[in-house]
Amino acid sequence: MASLSPSLKKNVLRHESLLLLVLLLEFAFLCLYARNFGTPDNLSNVVRHSAEIGLLALAMMPVILTGGIDLSVGSLMGLCAVLFGVLTHDYHLATLPAAAVTLAAGLFAGGFNAFLITALRLPPLIVTLGTYSLFRGLAEAITQGTKTYRAFDPAFLSLGETRWFGVPLQAWILTAAAASFYLLVHRSTFGRSFRAIGFSPEGARYAGLSVQSRTALPYLLTGLVAALAALLFTARLRQARADAGTGYELCAITAVVLGGTSIFGGVGTLPGTLAGIAAIAVLTNGIGRVPAVFKAGIGGELASLLTGALLLVALAGPELARVLSTRSAKISPSPKTL
């Protein structure tokens, strides 16, 4: 490493670069040992199955970058799916207006979170813990828990299988979303302030940023994206029910954090998040195809375990390097807090 220039060294050792390496190794391993992993059909499965979680993770990234969190996205997906079902079935709306209303409702629900967090200055973890229960609860109350909506427009349902130029629709949507969020977070002045706010809200305020209004936007966007994910999910599963998106909030947060965004805010990149999403999606799809794994019937469990382990290693790695390099330092710093 001595021959590398400092800036190059810094970039090679960046979290995102290391993660990309891990992703490549993962890929190579699965191509060699997992049965039929690298086929185009299977790779499009990888994208289709991770589209909703991927979208949520992309939207979650700016939220976490500002030092916040949104636990309600999975529940909001359930509520939006149910709402879309109600609009098309009980109110006989056509697909497009129903989808528009659903997206608006997602935006509104995101706005509700944003209002509580920014106007009332309540902690995001707790606000969205409350709306996590509330949104799922409303979805269950509307459907009385049991109702499933199934009679959707065939054209809408075919979206779950549509391919453009051989690539599933979900991949195009993910790409568009990733590009938009990239532009927002890394290329707009508004979005660049997210990092400043996450790094130090007080500092950002003194620097003249309107912290509250800028913090509101990421929550609005998670609401909108959750509604979009709900629509995609409904098309893919060919049904809308209150349990859509169960547990997706944790998957999305895992992808963001694995992608190198600090859970305390202030640090992180969108390409990193993309790599985090890909690493988890590839692992989830591929590990169950390794013959030794599927013979033992432990694919699902192993995928979760490895994701957890990857997350810890990804976080601990840089910290270990720092500890080793500053071993002689006398003062041990305080643990990080929420």
């Binding site: 049965r35 039929n36 086929t39 059909d41 299977n42 499965n45 289709r48 199955h49 999910f233 893919r236 599963l237 029910r241 349990d243 859509a244 169960t246 547990g247 997706y248 799809n285 169950g288 195809r289 599927f294 013979k295 019937g297 694919g299 699902g300 469990e301 979760s304």
Partner: peptide, 27 residues
Amino acid sequence: VELLFDGPTNTDPAKQNEIVENWITLG
């Protein structure tokens, strides 16, 4: 015969569909 055993480990309603689609590409 060779037996593959897998199923949902959580309450995600899409999981069974995903496993079926993955089995298709697994062959």
